[in-house]
């Protein structure tokens, strides 16, 4: 962290909500990737708060085409630049979890299968926040969103979080990593590694959203750390399919994490138990990926 450059390639003046986790990740990523970078954005919060015409917080080239095609658009940029003799440029897509786990997964899978030479970053804030907090495949069990409201019959999301990093590992790409804004050293190291490798690189970075999760804006980083501690988010990386766990979760009670957030406020003990059970299983699954 001490070695990061002071220069901001993603400037202040952007219009993210106070306490937003995403710009913490973007600032760091841009410091790692440097000026020889082109960025692609699908429709998401970052598209809007990072640039609203004619203003733009990014000092590097910026392209938006559509929502569901981030991986292929980044690939198209990279292939075009390569043909023009600019193959050394980093091309990075910054997509949200809805744009990745749901509508964007077809293009993502295609680009991964072709081992396109791009970095794909999914900033995971566990719902469609830009459109006003609707559930995505990445929304955790029990969470209130505007499309999983707390009703008399059904309260919150009944289903569980989709495990996209594992899907990406199954594509046999050079690099897949999970990270969190709450663990800067680990995140920075992974961003650096992603920058320096060739081929398809996928990072899913956990970035809490105070507006959508209903918590005090000061607690963004704290909650990111707690998610790792309780096992709802595991930090690992897979290099050429070989998985390393970067931080063994403390398996603190999920309940401690849940009670700080308005999106979980309605949850019954039974629901919290279900989420706890899922966290336990997740750790079993994730740790089983490591082959001794």
């Amino acid at each position: 962290m001490k070695d990061l450059p002071d220069e901001e390639l993603f400037t202040a003046g952007h219009t993210a909500c106070p306490g937003c986790g995403c710009p913490i990740m973007v600032r760091a990523a841009m410091k790692i990737f440097g000026p020889n970078t082109v960025c692609y954005f699908p429709a998401n919060c970052l598209l809007v708060f990072g640039a609203t015409y004619p203003q733009d917080a990014f000092k590097v080239p910026y392209l938006h085409v559509l929502f569901e095609n981030s991986a292929v658009c980044a690939s198209g940029i990279k292939r075009g630049l390569k043909k023009l003799g600019k193959g050394d440029v980093n091309v990075v897509a910054f997509a949200g979890d809805g744009g990745t786990a749901d509508i964007g997964i077809q293009a993502l899978s295609g680009a991964a299968e072709r081992n396109e030479d791009i970095i794909y970053i999914c900033y995971d804030n566990e719902a469609y926040m830009n459109t006003g907090i609707q559930r995505s495949g990445s929304t955790p069990h029990g969470a209130w969103t505007t499309t999983t409201p707390v009703g008399k019959k059904i309260a919150g999301k009944e289903l569980y979080k989709k495990d996209v990093p594992r899907i990406m590992i199954a594509h046999d790409v050079p690099y897949v990593a999970t990270a969190s804004i709450g663990h800067p050293a680990d995140m920075l190291r992974k961003l650096e590694k992603a920058r320096d490798l060739k081929g398809f690189r996928y990072l899913q970075i956990f970035a809490p959203c105070p507006t959508g999760w209903r918590f005090d804006t000061a607690k963004t980083v704290q909650l990111a750390k707690m998610a790792v501690d309780c096992g709802l988010w595991t930090l690992y990386e897979a290099e050429d399919g070989k998985v390393t766990i970067n931080k063994k979760p403390k398996m603190t009670p999920v309940k401690d994490y849940v009670k700080l957030q308005g999106r979980f406020r309605h949850m019954t003990d039974e629901q919290i138990d279900s989420l706890q059970e899922w966290a336990n299983k997740k750790w079993e699954r994730d740790s089983a990926m490591v082959i001794e």
């Binding site: 306490g19 800067p184 804006t217």
Partner: peptide
């Protein structure tokens, strides 16, 4: 400096400086 979503806390070697032109007051 690292966690500021706005990037408006500057490292001036001897001290940190807060730029209130941009600080949204999140409290992180």
């Amino acid at each position: 400096w690292f966690y500021c979503p706005e990037g408006c806390i500057y490292d001036k070697k001897e001290e940190m400086v807060f730029d209130f032109d941009y600080c949204k007051g999140c409290g992180i």
